[in-house]
Amino acid sequence: MLEVKDIHKSYSGNEILKGVSLKVEKGDIIVILGPSGSGKTTLLRCLNFLERAEKGSIDFDGIHTEFKSATGHQINEIRKRTGFVFQNYNLFANKTALQNVTEGLIVARKVPKKEAVDRAKQALDKVGLSDRYDYYPSQLSGGQQQRVGIARAIAVNPDVILFDEPTSALDPELVGEVLNVMKSLAEEGATMVVVTHEMGFAQDVASRVVFMDGGTIVEEGTPHEIFSRPRDPRTIQFLRRILREDYEYSI
């Protein structure tokens, strides 16, 4: 359904992505792991054209284009059919939770207001915020804000939802509520690409785990393949470091 080939992206001569290819089928939960600076976030941002890749092509459910020559219309089409959840939530500060969700429906997709409000309420109910419709982001906790961010992404019935380290900015005790929402979305059959450091989530929920390092995909496979018998030394080293940290912190 979504396939990107050979993405290259550099910032001022520094190559962040060195030819990454990724294929996402409907219903896939792809978790991208990797040390910081490995290009995970950049990859995700390229998929949504928040960064413009210099080279590579994207195939998205009938839309085929080179990243470099994508037209404004194609970019907008792709964005309308994807949801994006940001590390820092990026909620619209001047809009209520409900308006944050309806904005993309009413303004970008021309959904009639009444229907948009209904759909937005459904989305907010789904993430457990049925009592927070009229709250402004400044009145919500980090976890609640991120759940509004998720509601905003799912309300548009996207073909795929992209999560960019959705729990990294949260207080540890709020991580669970966001992960639970993501897990239930996965169980409902949503297609998701998730960049995260939550190893537990990767192990339990992912249908495929992709390990990135130095701007390339080093290894990919089922959670079992990656976590139980990783082959590449870089994967082994990364997992050893992360899992040992987990262990040390859980004393």
């Binding site: 949504n48 928040l50 907008n76 964005r79 309308k80 994807t82 949801g83 994006f84 940001f86 820092n88 990026n90 909620l91 619209f92 500060a93 904005e103 993309g104 303004v107 970008a108 997709r109 961010g149 905003r152 548009v156």
Partner: peptide
């Protein structure tokens, strides 16, 4: 980030 969020929402 709010601009990016708006763009990715299709605005």
């Amino acid at each position: 980030g709010q601009r990016e969020a708006a763009l990715s929402a299709g605005l």
